[in-house]
């Protein structure tokens, strides 16, 4: 019921032991060479040139191959040859598990089908991000996963409004947030009306009546919901090549407070409409 990678799915299912998975991952690490290592293997670069590319990457966010071409150390054709070599020699985790004797090929194929079915609910849907925003596919994924988790985890039915750039954020009854850093930096915020918070609490606590719950517990369910969503966004982000570290969740505002977006961020706002006038808003603050 969460975003997973294949190895994790297999261990969680008991199809392979943790030790065998680690053995297979170690084999992958030894087999799947990095771009610079392949370029050296093919005789395109020497150690000093690889180091020069690494130094340049500290000052400019470019992938190894692009930087090597920019510095005139590789031709575009050589860069393509390295990429092709990596692709042709890549050892996938399923193959690695066969090589270390954890599974046979037929069983891998069957489990892979089961894994795809398990993860199908988390395939990206249609979310439109305004033009001019960097990494739109990441924010599409973040919003899409939020919508899916609201339906699956919190059992909520709603209609998402169009995404707009915004200068402020409406806290509604309660707003909780998680900061993220790594290859992208910013803040994930979700505000909920009282009714949405109650529905979320009923689903997370698996209780039919939460009217007697203290505020601390009700607020915690919203924080835990965004913790689940952000953890799964980090997992999807990793599949997309983004390294996202997340901080623990916190309550940032309440009681219909209007929060101004700090100038160092671009804010993407996703309004969510529920029945009976209840509402929620997802806001993604992205560092400029």
């Amino acid at each position: 019921m969460a975003v997973k990678f294949f190895g994790q799915f297999l261990v969680e299912r008991g199809a392979v032991s943790p030790d065998k998975l680690l053995e297979a991952i170690d084999l992958q690490d030894r087999t799947n060479l990095k771009f610079g290592e392949v370029a050296m293997t093919l005789g395109f670069l020497g150690e000093a040139e690889v180091e020069r590319v690494h130094d340049a990457q500290r000052g400019e966010d470019l992938r190894f191959g692009d930087m090597a071409v920019k510095l005139g150390l590789l031709t575009p054709e050589q860069m393509q040859q390295v990429i092709t070599w990596q692709k042709n020699n890549h050892l996938y985790i399923g193959e690695a598990l066969v090589k270390v004797g954890a599974l046979d090929s037929a069983r891998v194929a069957k489990l892979l089908e089961e894994f795809k079915a398990d993860q199908a609910p988390y395939l990206a849907g249609a979310v439109m991000i305004p033009e001019g925003v960097d990494n739109p596919q990441v924010w599409e994924m973040a919003a899409d996963l939020t919508f899916k988790m609201l339906a699956r985890v919190a059992n909520l039915a709603f209609r998402p409004g169009p995404c707009v750039l915004s200068q402020s954020f409406d806290a509604k009854h309660l707003a909780a947030a998680m900061d993220f850093s790594g290859s992208l930096r910013g803040r994930y915020l979700l505000s909920v009306s009282r009714g949405v918070q109650q529905a979320m609490a009923r689903a997370i606590l698996k209780e039919s009546d939460v009217s007697g719950e203290p505020k601390e517990v009700l607020d915690d369910t919203v924080m835990e919901f965004i913790n689940i969503v952000c953890g799964n966004i980090a997992a999807k982000g990793a599949q997309m090549g983004q390294n996202l570290e997340i901080d623990p969740p916190l309550v940032v505002a309440e009681n219909d407070q209007q929060v101004s977006v700090p100038p160092e961020f671009i804010a993407l706002s996703f309004p969510l409409y529920f029945a009976d006038g209840e509402g929620a808003e997802l806001s993604l603050w992205i560092a400029r």
Partner: peptide, 10 residues
């Protein structure tokens, strides 16, 4: 919630 992040899991 970070179980699906390969590096954290391993």
């Amino acid at each position: 919630s970070l179980g699906g992040v390969g590096d954290k899991f391993t």
